[in-house]
Simulated assay, not measured.
Amino acid sequence: MAILAAAPTASWAAAPFGNAVIDVRRHGARGNGVVNDTRAFQAAIDALPPAGGTVQVPGGDYLIDPVVGVKLRSRMHLAMSPGTRLIAKPNAAERAYVLNAHRVSDVVISGGRIIGERSSHKGTTGEWGHGLMIRASERVQVRDMHISHCWGDGISIGGAKVGATVVPSRDLTIERVVCADNRRQGLTIGRSRRVRVFDSEFIDTGGTLPGAGIDVEPDQGDIADDILVARCTVRGNEGPGIQLYKRVTDATVRDCLVERNRGHGILTVGATDCRIEANRIRENVLGGVGVRPGTRGLVISRNEFDDNGRSAKAIASGAGRGGKRHVVIGEKTERISVESDNRYLD
């Protein structure tokens, strides 16, 4: 199916940083995959002047303790080389983050890989061992990264309580990122405003619920508003490919390939004024688009549906066709518009 509409780019950008450039190796990082480099990374970040600057990470394997984590600061660019790998140290913690952006602004994180420790995790509880945690932050860009094998999410975006007030994250861009083989979600978008996800892949998530490629699901007390997911591939996840779950408003999924997920390709529950348009949605086990109670004002248009609703066994073997569960609309939904310009190939 041809791409029918180009997604706009984000209208915000991180503020200019200072001219300082600091190499993590100048602060003791070894990059040999054996020595714990967490403190060295933190020392390099903390050495940036008030105006900010760039922390460079040359190629190498950097062992990071997620229980401590690397805490990012405002007005900085964490610039990793293509050969950079941040390798999470095995731990038993329920909550642990390799990179942590908490209440910061004007941050760019680019390049390299984060490799989680789900295969060597020492505990059995918890689901919050994330590669990158972003909370209550503004103007954050994440680009050209590969994040895999995390005990929780590849990337988690959300808000934080400041006193009695919930502060959401705002004006975030995820671009050219791959999140693969993470345990809970490839990407979680929680309490936030204006999040853009472009040209990325969210694949092979599974191990604990929901197991979604992308889960837009704000915690109680706030919403996720003005979300755009465009030109992404969402494939092979144990749960839904993309989930819009309660307290989600003004979300658009456009020009994506959503295929071979064991749940629905796209699932909406209690979402309001959202759009699913110009996607290829195929071979998803439970169905193409599932519209569940509480969903209001959903427009489904210009999509191409193919072979949704077959069993996982049939899909894996390549046997048979005839999945017919392309759009399934449940009770207690309002203003659901399935346009005539959708195409159904099976």
Rank of each mutant, 00 (worst) to 15 (best):
E127R: 07
R196N: 12
R176L: 08
R135M: 02
G320E: 02
A312C: 00
G53S: 03
H326D: 15
E127F: 05
G265P: 03
T249L: 13
A43L: 13
S340I: 04
T165R: 15
G294L: 06
H102S: 13
I214H: 03
G206T: 05
D153K: 03
D65T: 12
H264Y: 15
F198Y: 12
T84L: 05
G126A: 09
T295G: 06
V35G: 04
S105Y: 03
V289D: 04
P240H: 08
G318D: 01
G236F: 06
G206S: 00
I203R: 11
G265C: 04
I147F: 08
G294K: 11
A93S: 10
I45C: 01
V258N: 00
G52M: 00
T272N: 09
A88W: 03
R262P: 02
V177L: 10
D307C: 05
S11P: 01
G320A: 03
C179T: 15
F305M: 00
S317L: 12
S156R: 14
G31K: 13
T272H: 09
R235V: 02
T124R: 13
H264P: 05
V166W: 06
D255M: 11
V35M: 12
V178H: 11
A43S: 15
N303E: 04
Y97F: 15
R25C: 09
N32S: 09
A44S: 14
V253L: 12
C256P: 13
G154S: 10
M76A: 05
D307I: 00
R39G: 10
R193C: 02
G163W: 07
D204M: 01
L172S: 04
T252D: 06
I214C: 01
I157M: 08
A96D: 10
T173Q: 14
V98S: 01
E217W: 10
A212H: 14
R26F: 10
E259N: 11
I115N: 00
W151D: 10
S74R: 04
G190R: 05
P50W: 08
